[in-house]
């Protein structure tokens, strides 16, 4: 049976359907469910095997990217969400979803803390950036297991990963960095936002919660590649979803 994946739709998220397609191609059965439907009891998070928080501008990002969504997640889903994470089910937050995971304290969440330990703030360029980036996988979670580098777009104004030095040390030493922007001698725009240590994505210490700013769901078929006529014949973002779905199938 295909693993059931829930894509949470908060008012203003907008890559819900992009992710749904990626999950379908990766072998899951996705359902896009509005936060209101979780609230009214018609859907239970724990009935699903995988959770994705998609990109967009939840509630307009007016109080800081992902901030209000983070509060709503804690408020409405708190216990279920912790149970879901604790049982090891895969959780993926992309872009706005990553911001919400970080601001709700679900990432990096080292030392058993549920406080906000890091942030994603305004890009160093001071601008929204939409461009393709190369990502080198790192860490030892199932997400990046045997994963080739991913080439996919970023599209965000608040993607600069910032944390205090001690936090960064923890993240690095515990192997929680999942993706780094591949930079040459000049960091920008290969690292489009000026993130600490060029971090593009991190996991929790257990490795089942992944957050990342770039959009692997927008490179799941060859036609999406900028050089699709002469370039590779598959989408390099798809294997990441396959890794997540394969892990979801185990539970």
């Amino acid at each position: 049976m295909k693993p059931q994946a829930i894509i949470l739709h908060a008012s203003g998220t907008n890559r819900d359907q992009d992710v749904a397609w990626a999950l379908e191609l990766a072998g899951a059965k996705p359902a896009i469910v509005h936060m209101n439907a979780i609230n009214d009891g018609t859907h239970s998070l724990l009935d699903y095997q995988m959770l994705v928080l998609p990109g967009g501008f939840s509630y307009g990002d007016d109080l800081g990217a992902g901030k209000l969504w983070a509060i709503a997640l804690r408020n409405r889903l708190g216990a279920d969400l912790e149970a879901f994470v604790d049982r090891g089910s895969p959780v993926l937050g992309i872009c706005n979803g990553f911001q919400a995971l970080v601001k709700s304290g679900l990432l990096p969440a080292y030392g058993g803390s549920s406080d906000q330990q890091a942030t994603l703030t305004r890009n160093e360029s001071g601008k929204f950036e939409c461009r393709w980036v190369a990502l080198d996988p790192a860490g030892n979670s199932f997400w990046t297991n045997a994963l080739d580098p991913i080439y996919c777009p970023v599209a965000h104004g608040e993607g600069r990963f910032v944390a205090e030095a001690a936090t960064l040390d923890e993240i690095e030493s515990q192997g929680m960095v999942a993706f780094r922007y591949r930079v040459g001698s000049v960091a920008y725009p290969a690292d489009p936002n000026g993130s600490a240590n060029h971090i593009a994505g991190i996991t929790n210490p257990a490795g089942n919660v992944l957050g990342m700013m770039p959009h692997p769901e927008n490179h799941i078929v060859a036609a999406q590649h900028p050089q699709s006529r002469t370039g590779p014949t598959t989408g390099s973002g798809l294997p990441l979803f396959k890794n997540g779905v394969a892990h979801a199938a185990l539970s």
């Binding site: 907008n14 890559r15 359907q17 992009d18 397609w21 990109g55 601008k127 929204f128 950036e129 939409c130 461009r131 393709w132 777009p153 599209a155 959009h215 769901e217 927008n218 799941i220 036609a223 999406q224 900028p226 050089q227 699709s228």
Partner: peptide
Amino acid sequence: VRRYDHEVQGGTVVKPFAGAAQ
């Protein structure tokens, strides 16, 4: 142009910029 998201919805096949360096 880079301040506009031209990739959302995953259907942009020919993009605003072309070539390996785009």
